[in-house]
């Protein structure tokens, strides 16, 4: 399974690298120690950074969702710009080879970013533990964080088993058929 995970990260390396960057930046902002700031390593933390676990509710929430949110916010417009031109507006190499390559690249980079929006399982579990089990987050915060936490928790497992990448590949294949 680790091999599949690593393969998925290599396949989406731009997104994996940037995900690692956002994670380290978040750690810096939250004052968490970062163990290994190498983002693309051949192990189960590929595309992430090992860091000290956040001990406060909001910090744990930000650590679990912040980097993914950044990847989503930057990745979605990039994906959209490429995808709608290729699929809906039917840009072909015969229209303009330059623009065709640009849109293919935008689609790829966008998808690679969107394939790396979920946290490591450890971070998702830490969020659950700190915010909901230990209740180190106030009730309003817990209400607002509930759905994103569930999404982050489920997504962490999907990403762990490379399901997100597989789903994206299926989506792209179906879109172009």
């Amino acid at each position: 399974m680790t091999a599949l995970y690593i393969a998925s990260k290599i396949l989406t390396f731009p997104g994996a690298y940037l995900r690692g960057f956002w994670e380290q930046l978040t750690c810096k902002i939250l004052g968490l120690p970062v163990e290994v700031p190498g983002y693309l390593r051949i192990d189960e933390a590929c595309g992430h950074v090992e860091h000290g676990l956040a001990q406060k509710g909001f910090a744990a929430y930000l650590m679990a969702t912040g980097p993914g949110f950044m990847n989503f916010v930057t990745g979605f417009p990039i994906f959209l710009a490429g995808f709608i031109n290729l699929v809906f507006l039917g840009i072909r190499p015969s229209d303009s080879i330059g623009f065709f390559i640009l849109y293919v690249l935008l689609t790829y980079v966008g998808i690679s970013l969107l394939c790396n929006i979920f946290p490591l399982v450890e971070d998702a579990m830490n969020l659950y533990d700190v915010a909901f089990a230990q209740k180190k987050m106030n009730i309003i915060g817990r209400i607002f964080a509930f759905i994103p936490s569930i999404i982050a928790y489920a997504g962490a497992y999907l990403e762990k088993y490379a399901v997100t990448v597989i789903l994206w590949i299926v989506f792209i294949v179906l879109s172009f058929i």
């Binding site: 507006l89 039917g90 229209d95 303009s96 623009f99």
Partner: peptide, 10 residues
């Protein structure tokens, strides 16, 4: 050049 209908539409 960023707003164009490609041959795929035709």
């Amino acid at each position: 050049p960023f707003v164009a209908a490609g041959k795929g539409i035709d």
